[in-house]
Design a binder for these strands. Structure first.
Length: 468
DNA sequence: ATGTAC
């Protein structure tokens, strides 16, 4: 599948007509620049996903789409909940990788003198990087409760408050999760990492609200110009990875035994209503609850750091927490479906009654470490995308290419020129995350806004960034 | 993304 086979059906929508085994068309939301920059393997992956049994409407790719395991990152696909399938490739190894934004009641002027020391303290106190260590020591019994109930259990233990739950996708806990099903290997990996950032594109960023596009929407979110915010991007660490590894192995055998033909071996799946499908769903939900709890614990420690430093005059509250890698059972087009979002954000408009009162589900879209984030509110038009939007700027260069292309000094210079203080765990990880390794966040957000899928609320500017 | 291989 090449780019010239794409048919432009709207200003920012390109369609891939069904060919061969494709059951539905592919649809990609992008502009000409993003199309030119896009790896053509993404098109192949979109068309491969379109071949999966029972896929509804379209195989979708968001404007930040790039190459991934089986499905593209930025891929969205829905299947009937009663007769459809679930596929680990449509969720990703890092189950419920996601982003959480916190707001403070401090403005830039009040915070400025403390930026470096707060960042240093966060860097020191939050476990990060590839190794071991987590903020909360638990035993297996407690961990199973976290797998079953996510943030809700933590709040019952006195960690965080009800506001932390309310401002979280699915209130920080997925029903149906069953921690008892999770392999002891996955549990063991999870025990030592609960409350840790990880590595790769995981980060903690201090930012300020630089531009407000909608006073009304920003007010509803409790944000205004110059407010200091903190964003946390991480997922389910080794536990989620191990759950996925376990199921990729099991389902690989199933697909082989059933002689199921697939355009790509990485697209292994199982019927959702099979015994394996139900188990995988429950384990995936348990992994998602672990990721919610992980972000919750990191946020809680950052809250303590800031509140202690500012002598209790400071308040740190959750703006919203969005999942990026997850499958959800939802209603779309008058049907109960399972939506796979892999590197995509849930986007229900206010009409849905989901998310926050009078808003819908806020969508936080972070860029590279030099660009900050956008906050948007989905419009009713997001029905077209099974209530999904982009999740970031999207990689332009692979990790390998980024490491070859960028020198550490140059990245540091870019950040210093932008007055962004930074800390990182490894030089190679830092290079992989160079700003130049990412596409333009403005292009991604423009596609969303110009195609009528989202309304801009505000943009933040980074003042400090920590890379795991 | 990931104790970057079973």
């Amino acid at each position: 599948m090449s780019k010239h086979n794409l048919k432009q059906i709207d200003r920012f929508v390109f369609e891939m007509p069904p060919q061969g085994m494709m059951k539905v068309p592919g649809r990609i939301y992008l502009n000409q620049t993003l199309l030119d920059q896009m790896d053509s393997n993404v098109l192949t992956q979109v068309s491969n996903v379109a071949c999966l049994p029972g896929i509804l409407k379209y195989s979708l790719a968001m404007p930040d789409a790039h190459w991934g395991y089986g499905f593209p990152i930025g891929g969205v696909a829905a299947f009937p909940a009663d007769s459809g399938i679930i596929s680990p490739g449509g969720i990703g190894y890092d189950i419920n990788c996601g982003i959480r934004m916190l707001k403070t009641n401090l403005n830039y002027d009040q915070f400025q003198s403390q930026i470096k020391s707060v960042t240093d303290q966060i860097f020191q106190e939050i476990p990060m990087g590839l190794g071991r260590g987590g903020l909360l020591k638990t035993n297996k019994t407690e961990l199973i409760k976290i797998l079953d109930r996510g943030c809700q259990w933590l709040v019952e233990q006195g960690i965080g408050d009800s506001g932390d739950i309310f401002h979280c996708e699915d209130r920080g806990s997925l029903d149906g999760a069953d921690g008892k099903l999770v392999s002891s290997h996955a549990v063991d990996r999870g025990l030592s990492q609960l409350g840790s950032l990880g590595s790769g594109n995981h980060f903690i960023e201090l930012g300020i609200v630089e531009q407000v596009y909608s006073d009304k929407l920003a007010y509803k979110l409790g944000l205004k110009n110059n407010d200091v915010v903190v964003s946390i991007h991480t997922g389910s660490r080794g536990l989620g990875h191990q759950i996925t590894t376990d199921w990729v192995r099991t389902l690989g055998k199933y697909v082989k035994n059933q002689n199921i033909e697939l355009p790509d071996r990485q697209l292994i799946y199982t019927p959702l209503n099979s015994s394996n499908g139900k188990k995988y769903l429950k384990e995936m939900q348990a992994g998602a609850n672990y990721a919610f709890a992980n972000r919750h614990l990191i946020a809680h420690r950052i809250r303590n750091i800031i509140e202690t430093r500012f002598k209790k005059s400071a308040q740190v509250e959750l703006v919203y927490d969005c999942c990026h890698n997850i499958a959800k059972i939802e209603n779309h087009f008058n049907q109960k479906v399972i939506v796979h979002r892999k590197g995509a954000t849930r986007a229900f408009s206010v009409k849905s009654g989901m998310g926050l009162p009078g808003l819908g589900t806020p969508v936080i879209i972070p860029g590279s470490m030099s660009t900050g984030s956008y906050l948007l509110i989905p419009t009713d038009k997001c029905e077209q995308t099974f209530a999904s939007l982009a999740h970031g700027a999207g990689r332009l260069l692979s990790r390998k290419k980024a490491k070859q292309a960028f020198h550490i000094d140059k990245i540091q210079k870019i950040l210093l020129n932008n007055s962004i203080y930074f800390k990182f765990t490894t030089e190679s990880g830092f290079k992989e995350e160079a700003p130049g390794a990412y596409k333009s966040l403005t292009d991604v957000v423009n596609v969303i806004v110009e195609s009528g899928l989202g309304e801009l609320v505000l943009r933040t500017k980074p003042v400090a960034n920590i890379k795991g």
